[in-house]
């Protein structure tokens, strides 16, 4: 059994197609949707865990890429600014998957993006604003521009 949490980005022209259904029917995969959103520009975003045997998984991913879905590991969309992180541990109260966890007895707070489900709770809870989410790339660009001018 092979399983991975992925960020899928659907371009506007295929956002209304039943793509995940095909993953189940034609590629024998199971899924668990953690987040799904359509942005104002009609681009779709989905975070899901995809599960199946490795061969089916690889074929499924090939299918997604062929029809124009961008597939990324979640670590590309959620990251921690290591210079800003205080290593306190406040985030571990809300992280539902244990992606943010503490290594004992050193009490080092680590972020394992492989286990992240993209819930974004850490973004609000981190006292130092160390967690960054860039699911909406366009919005991210707009934010950084407005910050730069202030």
């Amino acid at each position: 059994m092979y399983a991975k949490v992925l960020v899928l980005r659907f371009p506007p022209d295929i956002v209304d197609k039943p793509i995940i259904t095909n993953l189940v029917r034609s590629y024998n995969l199971t899924f668990n949707i953690l987040k799904a959103q359509i942005f104002p520009r009609k681009e779709g975003l989905m975070i899901l865990e995809l599960r199946g045997n490795k061969n089916d998984y690889d074929r499924g991913l090939e299918y997604l890429k062929r029809i124009g879905v961008k597939v990324e590991p979640i670590g590309q969309s959620i990251s921690r600014n290591e210079d800003v992180c205080l290593q306190c541990g406040a985030c571990t109260a809300v992280c539902p998957t244990g992606a943010l966890h503490i290594i004992r007895p050193d009490m080092e707070v680590v972020f394992d993006s492989e286990r992240c489900s993209g819930c974004e709770w850490c973004v609000k809870v981190c006292p130092a604003h160390a967690m960054r989410v860039t699911f909406d790339r366009h919005m991210e660009e707009e934010t950084s521009i407005s910050q730069g001018s202030s």
Binding site: L86, Q87, C88, G89, A90, A93, I102, M107, V109, P127
Partner: peptide, 22 residues
Amino acid sequence: KSGTIRIRGKEVPTVPLSSYVR
């Protein structure tokens, strides 16, 4: 610091707000 404590019979995860590393 072990990560969990027992309160009223329940295993409760512990969360530090003070940075031990720093």
